[in-house]
Design a protein around this nucleic acid. Structure first.
Lengths: 193, 193
DNA sequence: TTATTTCATTGACTAAAATCAATGGTTTTT
DNA sequence: AAAAACCATTGATTTTAGTCAATGAAATAA
Protein backbone atom coordinates (compact mmCIF):
# COMPACT_ATOMS: atom_id res chain seq x y z
CA UNK A 1 0.00 0.00 0.00
CA UNK A 2 1.12 3.53 -0.78
CA UNK A 3 3.81 2.10 -3.07
CA UNK A 4 3.75 4.84 -5.65
CA UNK A 5 3.40 7.53 -3.01
CA UNK A 6 6.61 6.48 -1.33
CA UNK A 7 8.35 5.85 -4.60
CA UNK A 8 7.69 9.44 -5.65
CA UNK A 9 8.53 10.69 -2.19
CA UNK A 10 11.88 8.91 -2.21
CA UNK A 11 12.68 10.30 -5.64
CA UNK A 12 12.50 13.74 -4.07
CA UNK A 13 13.74 13.06 -0.54
CA UNK A 14 14.97 9.67 0.44
CA UNK A 15 13.42 8.21 3.57
CA UNK A 16 14.58 5.48 5.91
CA UNK A 17 12.23 2.73 7.09
CA UNK A 18 11.46 4.46 10.34
CA UNK A 19 10.48 7.71 8.68
CA UNK A 20 8.25 5.84 6.26
CA UNK A 21 6.48 4.18 9.16
CA UNK A 22 5.81 7.48 10.85
CA UNK A 23 4.47 9.05 7.69
CA UNK A 24 2.27 6.04 6.99
CA UNK A 25 0.36 6.60 10.19
CA UNK A 26 -0.80 9.94 8.82
CA UNK A 27 -2.05 8.64 5.49
CA UNK A 28 -5.52 7.43 4.60
CA UNK A 29 -6.34 5.30 1.58
CA UNK A 30 -9.47 6.06 -0.38
CA UNK A 31 -11.10 4.57 -3.43
CA UNK A 32 -13.13 6.67 -5.77
CA UNK A 33 -15.53 5.41 -8.42
CA UNK A 34 -15.63 6.93 -11.85
CA UNK A 35 -17.65 10.17 -11.82
CA UNK A 36 -17.48 10.36 -8.05
CA UNK A 37 -16.53 13.67 -6.47
CA UNK A 38 -13.54 14.14 -4.25
CA UNK A 39 -14.49 17.78 -3.79
CA UNK A 40 -17.41 19.95 -4.79
CA UNK A 41 -17.20 23.70 -5.18
CA UNK A 42 -18.69 25.33 -2.11
CA UNK A 43 -17.40 22.69 0.27
CA UNK A 44 -14.14 23.13 2.10
CA UNK A 45 -11.27 21.10 0.72
CA UNK A 46 -10.16 18.86 3.58
CA UNK A 47 -7.42 16.86 1.91
CA UNK A 48 -4.50 16.69 -0.41
CA UNK A 49 -4.89 13.65 -2.63
CA UNK A 50 -2.11 11.63 -4.20
CA UNK A 51 -3.19 9.43 -7.10
CA UNK A 52 -2.00 5.82 -6.81
CA UNK A 53 -4.24 4.67 -9.62
CA UNK A 54 -6.74 6.25 -11.97
CA UNK A 55 -7.30 9.77 -13.27
CA UNK A 56 -8.88 12.78 -11.62
CA UNK A 57 -9.66 16.22 -12.93
CA UNK A 58 -10.08 19.60 -11.27
CA UNK A 59 -12.41 22.13 -12.86
CA UNK A 60 -14.52 25.18 -12.32
CA UNK A 61 -18.01 25.80 -13.60
CA UNK A 62 -18.84 28.90 -15.62
CA UNK A 63 -22.20 30.62 -15.21
CA UNK A 64 -23.48 28.84 -18.35
CA UNK A 65 -22.61 25.60 -16.63
CA UNK A 66 -19.66 24.84 -18.87
CA UNK A 67 -16.69 23.14 -17.32
CA UNK A 68 -13.21 24.64 -17.35
CA UNK A 69 -10.63 22.02 -16.53
CA UNK A 70 -7.57 23.43 -14.86
CA UNK A 71 -5.75 20.24 -14.00
CA UNK A 72 -5.60 16.53 -14.60
CA UNK A 73 -3.99 14.16 -12.12
CA UNK A 74 -2.77 10.78 -13.29
CA UNK A 75 -0.84 8.22 -11.29
CA UNK A 76 1.89 9.86 -9.28
CA UNK A 77 0.30 13.30 -9.29
CA UNK A 78 -1.13 15.24 -6.40
CA UNK A 79 -4.38 17.16 -6.53
CA UNK A 80 -6.24 19.50 -4.23
CA UNK A 81 -7.90 22.89 -4.09
CA UNK A 82 -4.87 24.34 -2.37
CA UNK A 83 -6.42 27.70 -1.59
CA UNK A 84 -9.40 26.14 0.13
CA UNK A 85 -7.21 23.57 1.87
CA UNK A 86 -4.87 26.18 3.30
CA UNK A 87 -7.37 28.89 4.19
CA UNK A 88 -10.39 26.81 5.14
CA UNK A 89 -12.57 28.88 2.83
CA UNK A 90 -15.00 27.16 0.52
CA UNK A 91 -13.62 25.69 -2.65
CA UNK A 92 -14.09 27.21 -6.08
CA UNK A 93 -13.07 24.06 -7.91
CA UNK A 94 -14.58 20.62 -8.30
CA UNK A 95 -12.51 17.48 -8.31
CA UNK A 96 -13.82 14.17 -9.59
CA UNK A 97 -12.63 10.88 -10.99
CA UNK A 98 -12.52 10.11 -14.70
CA UNK A 99 -11.64 6.49 -13.99
CA UNK A 100 -12.02 4.41 -10.83
CA UNK A 101 -9.19 5.63 -8.67
CA UNK A 102 -7.13 4.80 -5.63
CA UNK A 103 -5.94 7.75 -3.62
CA UNK A 104 -3.73 8.49 -0.68
CA UNK A 105 -5.23 11.26 1.40
CA UNK A 106 -3.48 13.68 3.70
CA UNK A 107 -5.84 15.61 5.92
CA UNK A 108 -5.18 19.12 7.07
CA UNK A 109 -4.23 18.05 10.59
CA UNK A 110 -2.01 15.27 9.23
CA UNK A 111 -0.36 17.78 6.94
CA UNK A 112 0.35 20.18 9.77
CA UNK A 113 1.67 17.54 12.12
CA UNK A 114 3.87 16.09 9.42
CA UNK A 115 5.30 19.52 8.68
CA UNK A 116 6.21 19.86 12.32
CA UNK A 117 7.40 16.37 13.10
CA UNK A 118 9.03 15.16 9.92
CA UNK A 119 11.53 17.64 8.48
CA UNK A 120 11.75 15.71 5.25
CA UNK A 121 8.04 16.13 4.72
CA UNK A 122 8.58 19.85 4.72
CA UNK A 123 11.24 19.47 2.04
CA UNK A 124 9.03 17.16 0.04
CA UNK A 125 6.16 19.62 0.21
CA UNK A 126 8.34 22.46 -0.94
CA UNK A 127 9.65 20.45 -3.86
CA UNK A 128 6.13 19.45 -4.81
CA UNK A 129 4.98 23.02 -4.76
CA UNK A 130 8.01 24.23 -6.68
CA UNK A 131 7.44 21.61 -9.33
CA UNK A 132 3.77 22.49 -9.61
CA UNK A 133 4.63 26.17 -9.89
CA UNK A 134 7.19 25.63 -12.63
CA UNK A 135 4.89 23.32 -14.57
CA UNK A 136 2.11 25.85 -14.45
CA UNK A 137 4.45 28.62 -15.51
CA UNK A 138 5.47 26.57 -18.50
CA UNK A 139 1.85 26.01 -19.39
CA UNK A 140 1.07 29.68 -19.09
CA UNK A 141 4.06 30.63 -21.21
CA UNK A 142 3.00 28.22 -23.90
CA UNK A 143 -0.53 29.63 -23.77
CA UNK A 144 0.57 33.16 -24.51
CA UNK A 145 3.29 32.35 -27.01
CA UNK A 146 2.60 29.19 -28.98
CA UNK A 147 0.20 28.15 -31.72
CA UNK A 148 -2.52 25.63 -30.96
CA UNK A 149 -0.63 22.98 -32.91
CA UNK A 150 2.47 23.55 -30.83
CA UNK A 151 0.54 23.61 -27.60
CA UNK A 152 -1.14 20.33 -28.38
CA UNK A 153 2.18 18.83 -29.39
CA UNK A 154 3.70 19.95 -26.10
CA UNK A 155 0.85 18.46 -24.15
CA UNK A 156 1.05 15.08 -25.80
CA UNK A 157 4.81 14.89 -25.50
CA UNK A 158 4.76 15.78 -21.82
CA UNK A 159 1.80 13.57 -20.96
CA UNK A 160 1.72 10.85 -23.61
CA UNK A 161 -0.90 8.79 -21.79
CA UNK A 162 -3.37 11.53 -21.24
CA UNK A 163 -4.60 11.41 -24.82
CA UNK A 164 -5.51 7.74 -24.48
CA UNK A 165 -7.14 8.09 -21.11
CA UNK A 166 -8.95 11.38 -21.17
CA UNK A 167 -11.78 12.25 -23.59
CA UNK A 168 -10.70 14.71 -26.21
CA UNK A 169 -13.27 17.33 -25.34
CA UNK A 170 -11.78 17.51 -21.86
CA UNK A 171 -8.35 18.10 -23.27
CA UNK A 172 -9.93 20.85 -25.33
CA UNK A 173 -11.37 22.34 -22.15
CA UNK A 174 -7.96 22.12 -20.49
CA UNK A 175 -6.50 24.05 -23.41
CA UNK A 176 -9.30 26.61 -23.33
CA UNK A 177 -10.71 25.43 -26.68
CA UNK A 178 -13.94 24.06 -28.06
CA UNK A 179 -13.97 20.34 -28.92
CA UNK A 180 -14.51 21.10 -32.61
CA UNK A 181 -11.47 23.31 -32.68
CA UNK A 182 -9.24 20.72 -31.08
CA UNK A 183 -10.50 18.14 -33.52
CA UNK A 184 -9.46 20.39 -36.40
CA UNK A 185 -6.10 21.14 -34.81
CA UNK A 186 -5.44 17.41 -34.61
CA UNK A 187 -6.41 16.87 -38.22
CA UNK A 188 -4.12 19.68 -39.31
CA UNK A 189 -1.23 18.12 -37.39
CA UNK A 190 -1.82 14.64 -38.77
CA UNK A 191 -2.20 15.72 -42.40
CA UNK A 192 0.94 17.87 -42.30
CA UNK A 193 3.13 14.90 -41.33
CA UNK B 1 17.24 50.30 3.67
CA UNK B 2 15.26 47.15 2.88
CA UNK B 3 12.21 48.82 4.47
CA UNK B 4 9.64 47.34 2.14
CA UNK B 5 11.34 43.97 2.10
CA UNK B 6 11.04 43.62 5.85
CA UNK B 7 7.59 45.11 5.89
CA UNK B 8 6.40 42.39 3.52
CA UNK B 9 8.38 39.76 5.37
CA UNK B 10 6.80 40.72 8.68
CA UNK B 11 3.35 40.62 7.16
CA UNK B 12 3.96 36.96 6.48
CA UNK B 13 6.17 35.95 9.40
CA UNK B 14 6.95 38.40 12.12
CA UNK B 15 10.64 38.83 12.94
CA UNK B 16 12.39 40.16 16.01
CA UNK B 17 15.25 42.66 15.75
CA UNK B 18 17.90 40.02 16.04
CA UNK B 19 16.47 37.91 13.25
CA UNK B 20 16.23 40.95 11.02
CA UNK B 21 19.89 41.69 11.61
CA UNK B 22 20.93 38.20 10.67
CA UNK B 23 18.87 38.27 7.50
CA UNK B 24 20.21 41.69 6.56
CA UNK B 25 23.74 40.34 6.36
CA UNK B 26 22.60 38.08 3.52
CA UNK B 27 20.97 40.78 1.43
CA UNK B 28 22.53 42.92 -1.28
CA UNK B 29 21.06 46.16 -2.58
CA UNK B 30 21.16 46.84 -6.27
CA UNK B 31 20.00 49.69 -8.47
CA UNK B 32 18.89 49.11 -12.00
CA UNK B 33 18.43 51.72 -14.67
CA UNK B 34 15.45 51.68 -16.98
CA UNK B 35 15.98 49.16 -19.78
CA UNK B 36 18.83 47.50 -17.91
CA UNK B 37 18.83 43.71 -17.66
CA UNK B 38 18.78 41.85 -14.41
CA UNK B 39 18.92 38.59 -16.32
CA UNK B 40 19.36 37.59 -19.94
CA UNK B 41 18.15 34.31 -21.38
CA UNK B 42 21.11 31.97 -21.71
CA UNK B 43 22.80 33.18 -18.54
CA UNK B 44 22.25 31.43 -15.25
CA UNK B 45 19.94 33.22 -12.86
CA UNK B 46 22.02 33.90 -9.78
CA UNK B 47 19.55 35.81 -7.63
CA UNK B 48 16.05 36.27 -6.37
CA UNK B 49 15.17 39.95 -6.60
CA UNK B 50 12.75 41.82 -4.38
CA UNK B 51 11.52 45.14 -5.79
CA UNK B 52 11.82 48.05 -3.34
CA UNK B 53 11.14 50.61 -6.03
CA UNK B 54 10.39 50.58 -9.74
CA UNK B 55 8.96 48.02 -12.12
CA UNK B 56 10.54 44.98 -13.73
CA UNK B 57 9.26 42.54 -16.26
CA UNK B 58 10.09 38.93 -17.09
CA UNK B 59 9.66 37.75 -20.66
CA UNK B 60 10.67 35.20 -23.22
CA UNK B 61 11.54 35.82 -26.83
CA UNK B 62 9.78 33.96 -29.63
CA UNK B 63 11.68 32.94 -32.75
CA UNK B 64 10.32 35.98 -34.59
CA UNK B 65 11.85 38.08 -31.85
CA UNK B 66 8.53 39.02 -30.29
CA UNK B 67 8.39 39.38 -26.55
CA UNK B 68 6.05 37.35 -24.39
CA UNK B 69 5.75 38.87 -20.95
CA UNK B 70 5.01 36.34 -18.27
CA UNK B 71 5.32 38.54 -15.21
CA UNK B 72 5.52 42.09 -13.96
CA UNK B 73 7.05 42.95 -10.61
CA UNK B 74 6.11 46.20 -8.93
CA UNK B 75 7.11 47.37 -5.48
CA UNK B 76 6.80 44.57 -2.98
CA UNK B 77 6.99 41.79 -5.54
CA UNK B 78 9.68 39.21 -6.02
CA UNK B 79 11.05 38.18 -9.38
CA UNK B 80 13.46 35.53 -10.64
CA UNK B 81 13.82 32.76 -13.18
CA UNK B 82 13.13 30.20 -10.52
CA UNK B 83 13.95 27.20 -12.63
CA UNK B 84 17.35 28.53 -13.57
CA UNK B 85 17.98 29.73 -10.04
CA UNK B 86 17.21 26.36 -8.50
CA UNK B 87 18.80 24.07 -11.06
CA UNK B 88 21.72 26.20 -12.23
CA UNK B 89 20.72 25.66 -15.85
CA UNK B 90 20.67 28.57 -18.23
CA UNK B 91 17.67 30.84 -18.08
CA UNK B 92 14.91 30.88 -20.66
CA UNK B 93 13.54 34.22 -19.54
CA UNK B 94 14.83 37.77 -19.64
CA UNK B 95 14.28 40.20 -16.80
CA UNK B 96 14.71 43.93 -17.20
CA UNK B 97 13.61 47.20 -15.67
CA UNK B 98 10.77 49.28 -17.08
CA UNK B 99 11.57 52.11 -14.66
CA UNK B 100 14.72 52.86 -12.68
CA UNK B 101 14.55 50.38 -9.86
CA UNK B 102 15.95 49.53 -6.46
CA UNK B 103 16.23 45.88 -5.68
CA UNK B 104 17.10 43.62 -2.80
CA UNK B 105 19.03 40.62 -4.04
CA UNK B 106 19.34 37.22 -2.46
CA UNK B 107 22.06 35.08 -3.99
CA UNK B 108 21.84 31.34 -4.23
CA UNK B 109 24.31 30.76 -1.39
CA UNK B 110 22.52 33.35 0.76
CA UNK B 111 19.23 31.64 0.02
CA UNK B 112 20.57 28.26 1.00
CA UNK B 113 22.19 29.46 4.19
CA UNK B 114 19.11 31.36 5.19
CA UNK B 115 16.98 28.29 4.65
CA UNK B 116 19.25 26.37 7.00
CA UNK B 117 19.92 28.98 9.63
CA UNK B 118 16.71 30.98 9.88
CA UNK B 119 13.63 28.80 10.22
CA UNK B 120 11.35 31.75 9.59
CA UNK B 121 12.99 32.31 6.24
CA UNK B 122 11.90 28.86 5.26
CA UNK B 123 8.33 29.69 6.24
CA UNK B 124 8.50 32.99 4.40
CA UNK B 125 9.77 31.25 1.27
CA UNK B 126 7.02 28.71 1.39
CA UNK B 127 4.37 31.37 1.78
CA UNK B 128 5.85 33.34 -1.10
CA UNK B 129 5.82 30.32 -3.32
CA UNK B 130 2.31 29.35 -2.29
CA UNK B 131 1.08 32.84 -3.04
CA UNK B 132 2.79 32.87 -6.41
CA UNK B 133 1.32 29.49 -7.25
CA UNK B 134 -2.20 30.51 -6.34
CA UNK B 135 -1.93 33.80 -8.21
CA UNK B 136 -0.76 32.03 -11.31
CA UNK B 137 -3.51 29.45 -11.02
CA UNK B 138 -6.04 32.24 -10.87
CA UNK B 139 -4.53 33.83 -13.94
CA UNK B 140 -4.59 30.57 -15.81
CA UNK B 141 -8.19 29.91 -14.84
CA UNK B 142 -9.21 33.32 -16.06
CA UNK B 143 -7.35 32.71 -19.32
CA UNK B 144 -9.29 29.59 -20.14
CA UNK B 145 -12.67 30.73 -18.88
CA UNK B 146 -13.20 34.48 -19.14
CA UNK B 147 -13.77 36.97 -21.95
CA UNK B 148 -11.08 39.50 -22.79
CA UNK B 149 -13.16 42.25 -21.22
CA UNK B 150 -13.42 40.32 -17.99
CA UNK B 151 -9.75 39.43 -18.01
CA UNK B 152 -8.72 43.03 -18.47
CA UNK B 153 -11.11 44.09 -15.74
CA UNK B 154 -9.61 41.52 -13.39
CA UNK B 155 -6.11 42.67 -14.15
CA UNK B 156 -6.83 46.32 -13.49
CA UNK B 157 -8.72 45.62 -10.30
CA UNK B 158 -5.96 43.43 -8.93
CA UNK B 159 -3.10 45.71 -10.03
CA UNK B 160 -4.62 49.17 -10.32
CA UNK B 161 -1.25 50.88 -10.74
CA UNK B 162 0.03 48.70 -13.50
CA UNK B 163 -2.06 50.43 -16.12
CA UNK B 164 -0.50 53.78 -15.32
CA UNK B 165 3.02 52.51 -15.13
CA UNK B 166 3.33 49.90 -17.83
CA UNK B 167 2.87 50.59 -21.55
CA UNK B 168 -0.32 49.18 -22.88
CA UNK B 169 1.28 46.99 -25.50
CA UNK B 170 3.14 45.20 -22.71
CA UNK B 171 -0.07 44.53 -20.89
CA UNK B 172 -1.36 43.14 -24.16
CA UNK B 173 1.68 40.88 -24.34
CA UNK B 174 1.07 39.75 -20.76
CA UNK B 175 -2.48 38.84 -21.74
CA UNK B 176 -1.33 37.05 -24.88
CA UNK B 177 -2.94 39.65 -27.16
CA UNK B 178 -1.88 42.06 -29.87
CA UNK B 179 -1.77 45.76 -28.89
CA UNK B 180 -4.52 46.61 -31.35
CA UNK B 181 -6.79 44.02 -29.82
CA UNK B 182 -6.28 45.30 -26.31
CA UNK B 183 -6.95 48.82 -27.51
CA UNK B 184 -10.28 47.69 -28.91
CA UNK B 185 -11.11 45.73 -25.77
CA UNK B 186 -10.58 48.89 -23.72
CA UNK B 187 -12.76 50.95 -26.01
CA UNK B 188 -15.51 48.38 -25.78
CA UNK B 189 -15.33 48.48 -21.99
CA UNK B 190 -15.35 52.27 -21.79
CA UNK B 191 -18.23 52.76 -24.22
CA UNK B 192 -20.40 50.18 -22.49
CA UNK B 193 -20.20 52.10 -19.21
C1' DT C 1 -28.83 -7.29 -26.22
C1' DT C 2 -30.84 -3.18 -27.12
C1' DA C 3 -31.46 1.51 -26.15
C1' DT C 4 -29.36 5.56 -24.74
C1' DT C 5 -25.87 8.59 -23.96
C1' DT C 6 -21.47 10.27 -24.97
C1' DC C 7 -18.12 11.37 -28.22
C1' DA C 8 -15.29 12.93 -32.37
C1' DT C 9 -15.63 14.57 -36.78
C1' DT C 10 -17.17 17.42 -40.56
C1' DG C 11 -19.55 21.26 -43.01
C1' DA C 12 -21.53 25.83 -43.39
C1' DC C 13 -21.69 30.04 -41.22
C1' DT C 14 -20.64 33.75 -37.64
C1' DA C 15 -17.80 36.10 -34.46
C1' DA C 16 -13.40 37.25 -32.70
C1' DA C 17 -8.63 38.30 -33.05
C1' DA C 18 -4.58 39.07 -36.04
C1' DT C 19 -2.53 41.53 -39.69
C1' DC C 20 -1.42 45.44 -42.48
C1' DA C 21 -1.31 50.22 -42.94
C1' DA C 22 -1.81 54.92 -41.66
C1' DT C 23 -2.24 58.75 -38.26
C1' DG C 24 -1.32 61.83 -34.56
C1' DG C 25 0.43 62.29 -30.19
C1' DT C 26 4.04 61.28 -26.71
C1' DT C 27 8.35 60.56 -24.95
C1' DT C 28 13.16 60.03 -25.49
C1' DT C 29 17.53 61.12 -27.62
C1' DT C 30 20.67 63.89 -29.68
C1' DA D 1 14.99 72.62 -29.79
C1' DA D 2 14.72 69.35 -33.32
C1' DA D 3 14.84 64.68 -34.74
C1' DA D 4 13.91 60.12 -33.83
C1' DA D 5 11.74 56.46 -31.67
C1' DC D 6 7.89 54.83 -29.38
C1' DC D 7 3.08 54.40 -28.57
C1' DA D 8 -2.18 54.10 -28.86
C1' DT D 9 -5.81 54.28 -31.85
C1' DT D 10 -8.55 53.42 -35.94
C1' DG D 11 -9.94 51.37 -40.44
C1' DA D 12 -9.92 47.68 -43.86
C1' DT D 13 -8.93 42.96 -44.60
C1' DT D 14 -7.49 38.20 -43.56
C1' DT D 15 -7.08 34.46 -40.58
C1' DT D 16 -8.55 31.87 -36.75
C1' DA D 17 -11.70 30.10 -33.49
C1' DG D 18 -16.58 29.63 -32.09
C1' DT D 19 -21.34 28.30 -33.14
C1' DC D 20 -24.91 25.51 -34.92
C1' DA D 21 -26.29 21.35 -36.94
C1' DA D 22 -25.86 16.70 -38.55
C1' DT D 23 -23.67 12.06 -38.69
C1' DG D 24 -21.77 7.73 -37.37
C1' DA D 25 -19.11 5.34 -34.03
C1' DA D 26 -18.23 3.89 -29.44
C1' DA D 27 -19.13 3.43 -24.69
C1' DT D 28 -22.54 2.97 -21.06
C1' DA D 29 -26.79 1.81 -19.01
C1' DA D 30 -31.13 -0.56 -18.99
Amino acid sequence: MYELFFQKFNEKVSLNAEEEEIIKTYLTPKKLRRKQYLLQAGDVCKVIAFVEKGVLREYSLGENGNEHIIQFALEGWTISDLYSFLTGESATYNIDALEDAELVLISKSAHEELLQKVPKYEIYTRMQLTGAYLAMQKRLTSMISLSLEERYGNLTSIYPNIVQRVPQHMIASYMGLKPETLSRVRRKISTSK
